[in-house]
Simulated assay, not measured.
Amino acid sequence: MTKSELILRLSEQNPHLYQRDIEKIVTTIFDEISEALARGDRVELRGFGAFSVKKRDARVGRNPRTGASVHVTQKFIPFFKTGKQLRERLNTE
């Protein structure tokens, strides 16, 4: 599902709201999650999961084409851990 599909589905479920208002709400939520992660905070949505940032240390890697050693700087990557309710919902038979 893309962001535009999410907005469309929400507007269909809530005909009393304008689509532009729903778009602002969805954009604001995603922006706040992104800003929190950029600050290094953890974002938890109960029943859905938690977003956090993990640090990858600097290391020496290899260029797969030439085999030469390459210095890779430290990086921060987003990490998502699913919540218990989401895992149970996905694994019901």
Rank of each mutant, 00 (worst) to 15 (best):
T2N: 14
E5Q: 14
L8T: 14
R9M: 08
Q13T: 04
Q13R: 15
N14T: 09
P15D: 07
H16S: 11
L17I: 03
L17E: 01
Y18G: 03
Y18C: 01
I22N: 09
I22Y: 07
I25E: 00
I25V: 15
I25W: 04
V26S: 03
T28K: 03
I29H: 00
D31C: 00
D31R: 05
E32W: 01
S34W: 06
E35F: 06
A36G: 09
A36L: 05
L37Y: 06
R42G: 02
V43N: 03
E44N: 12
E44Q: 14
E44T: 15
E44F: 02
R46C: 09
G47D: 07
F48M: 08
A50Q: 02
F51G: 03
K54I: 07
A58G: 09
R59G: 02
R59V: 07
G61Y: 08
R65K: 15
T66V: 05
G67R: 06
A68K: 10
A68Y: 01
T73S: 14
K75A: 15
K75D: 03
I77C: 01
P78K: 06
K81E: 12
K84P: 01
L86G: 08
R87M: 05
R87Q: 12
E88V: 00
R89M: 11
R89K: 15
N91T: 13
N91G: 08
T92W: 03
E93R: 11
